[in-house]
Design a protein around this nucleic acid. Sequence first.
DNA 1: CTGTCCCTC
DNA 2: GAGGGACAG
Length: 250
Amino acid sequence: PANRKHSKFRPDPDVDPMFTAHNEDYWKSGWSRGHMAPAGDNKFSQEAMNDTFLLSNIVPQNLDNNAGFWNRFEMYCRDLASRFEDVYVLSGPLYLPTQDGQQKVVKYPVIGGSEVAVPTHLYKVVVAERFNTPTSIAAFVVPNQRIGYQNLTDFQVPIKDLEKSAGFSIYPQLDRSKTKNLCELDSCKLLGKNEFELYFIGRKLQSARTLERAEKVWKELEEKNLKPDQYLVDLYAKKKEELSAKPSEE
DNA sequence: CTGTCCCTC
DNA sequence: GAGGGACAG
């Protein structure tokens, strides 16, 4: 499977140099580089994953949002793909107006020499299809800031509202009168705090190269008062054996 | 999983 | 510069 450690963020060579973003724009900007098409959706091919790191697929995103709520949102979409025949996900940035005295204004920061626009919100439209059931669809608009463990449905909006905000039609060929609300069919429930933290502690354990690192990751459990499941207990035991057997592998 | 930062080559 | 590991949510 593809590994994101082999991918690098880089300007998209197909974008005119006059318009492309650069990595330097993000450095010390206070904003992280957030994928629209997720790297994790492209593990089937290193080349495909590398393409998701092109800066044309990236927007300045709040780091906590990126690693937290948005991350869990993307995990939910991947999980949908295992339970439905076909899943389509459309993601992108929004620059929404805010009230400023008597009038509304659109205001957003720009970062770096390229003046990369920082979106106020991000959207996702999720379409899920399964044989013998109506196509289900839902749209979400999420502020580009730390969200925490709120419900995904808190951010659901009518498709029409999103179309108006975004300025284009979404799946215009789809007869919307024949579709269902995805969140009524499938709950739209994201991973909870415990399951989520256990998940990425598992990922860190797997990537640990030294016994010290593995032990340190394991201590995160106690510090956060998390109870490991059997999978994690077994993984830690296996990792400890593996890493103590050969302390310095060349 | 999502990232940043820093070190070595 | 490129690649890799440590680190954090």
